[in-house]
Amino acid sequence: MSEAAGRAAPEKRSISPIFWLLFGAGGMLAAVFGPALILITDLLAPTGIGLPENFEDYSHALAFAKNPIGKLVVLAVISLFFWHGAERLYLTLKDMKARPLLVLKFGTYGVAAAVTLATFALLLSIGF
């Protein structure tokens, strides 16, 4: 698939594929689990429809966040959802000719990176 000429002269590599990967992972995660997650955590549990009052109370939520698998789920969902939104918002605003691009990058990818690091730190701080 790759041409010989491409191999002979290594070009400057783009880091875009990293963002596409995060965008795709977040998009797939949201497409498979997004609606069910929103329904469970933000609609059924708070209103008590079908789920008990204490479903996501402090002790349950804390136990989930202390569990290693729970931590992984929380980190994956929060960070990948942000990376997905960041890629779409950045490219849309860019196509809308919003400028400067550096500000757009900080406001999208920068926010996603900051939230990822913060989520990681919070989960560590909450402990096991």
């Binding site: 929103i38 969902v77 929060i78 990948l80 959802f81 997905h84 939104g85 960041a86 849309t92 913060a118």
Partner: peptide, 30 residues
């Protein structure tokens, strides 16, 4: 379609706020 992807991130933000309040303690989480 592109902005529906931003809604995905907004739900991530709701969960993130929940995680921060969980870290701050029972009052904040309440």
């Amino acid at each position: 379609r592109e902005l529906s992807g931003v809604a995905v991130a907004v739900y991530g933000a709701v969960l993130f706020v929940g995680l921060v309040s969980l870290w701050r303690g029972p009052d904040s989480y309440g």
